[in-house]
Nucleic acid binder design. Structure first.
Lengths: 186, 186
DNA sequence: AGTTGACCAACGAACGATCGTTCGTTAACC
DNA sequence: GGTTAACGAACGATCGTTCGTTGGTCAACT
């Protein structure tokens, strides 16, 4: 006889994050998600109330991770440069340790309804503002643009970096900081 | 009496690019696409043979644009630094002048079947190789990583830059080049 | 220790809606 | 008058979701 798979709500949300990250929200059916958990589609509704709610939860997990990371980095004492380093190191940690939630947060937020989407957009702007402020303290000529460029590099990590390569996490942080501070002339 | 909308194949492909860019491939139905053109869903098949073929065509248009741009930039005479500038300026032109195809190329290529996806991936790598080579000529310490970082900034333009702001196209190119060459210290 | 019963999560059939696509028909244009 | 493209009904498949049923777990009680 075969045993029934029994899963927790957290299992469902985490697996949804994985599939949303890999195939996108519209590319993932509830039956796909259930199959990944060893369930039938209808069984998911013992844990969650709708597919859209699942997306909201995954995206908000991503948003919270970045927010917590930024708060911790800004709370550190020291120079503005050291706080920038903490921001970057924190960002890299969030991306590498929570890749699925991050990818869903970055790529699928546009699917959310107006209310949730604007909330996520606001969170993203607050996060970017952390970078702008630190860069301002560092007397950077154009903190707004510098923040965009640095975050472009950081957010793109999701698309290419995999820890299997020779580039270790701390080296990655140093390389990004080196590039942001001095450009290619190093 | 009402006249019937008559469209060309190119109208269909261009509009598909617009919707794929805005809503994603799986988020766009053939009836959505037809409605945007003032047609019924079935009428599309007078012009194209399948939804997937539409995606292939849009993505390949994006790939071709970047390839042509890189070839033109590399064909210019002058220093490696001037060729890098031509690469960056060309990339900015492609993104700003063909936003829909670029967004679909960057974000929806993963939906393609294995054959087309690997072809697009190869094209992307050849494009990145152009940057690696020029950066190598410039004696950059780590051309591979520098190319990734620079392209991260360039590809992210699709997500935030809109020409309505105060930042003009040529200024944008200069800012990106300045950041890539010298970092935030300028 | 054994029995009972409430609870809970998964099952499985079924719903209406929408998906991509087909095809015979219709109408506008050279 | 022949060609071409849009129409409009219809196809089977799949979508998200509902709901009555089933079976396993575990605490309470004898």
């Amino acid at each position: 006889m075969t045993t029934r798979a029994v899963r927790s709500r957290d299992d469902v949300v985490r697996t949804a994050g994985k599939l949303f990250a890999e195939r996108g929200y519209h590319g993932t059916s509830m039956r796909d998600l259930a199959a990944e958990l060893g369930l039938l589609g209808s069984s998911l509704y013992s844990h969650i109330s709708s597919k859209e709610d699942l997306l909201v939860e995954v995206v908000e997990r991503g948003a919270d991770l970045f927010q917590s990371s930024a708060e911790a980095a800004l709370a550190t004492s020291g120079t503005a440069a050291s706080r920038l380093k903490a921001l970057v190191a924190g960002h890299v940690d969030v991306v590498l340790d929570h890749l699925d939630e991050v990818r869903t947060f970055l790529n699928e937020a546009g699917v959310l309804d107006e209310v949730h989407r604007s909330r996520v957009l606001a969170a993203r702007d607050r996060y970017e503002a952390s970078y702008r402020e630190v860069l301002s303290e560092m007397k950077v000529a154009d903190p707004k643009l510098a923040a965009i460029f640095l975050l472009s590099i950081l957010n793109a990590l999701e698309r290419w970096y995999r820890p299997t390569g020779s580039l270790q996490r701390q080296d990655l942080v140093d390389e990004i900081l080196g590039f942001a501070l001095n450009g290619i002339r190093r």
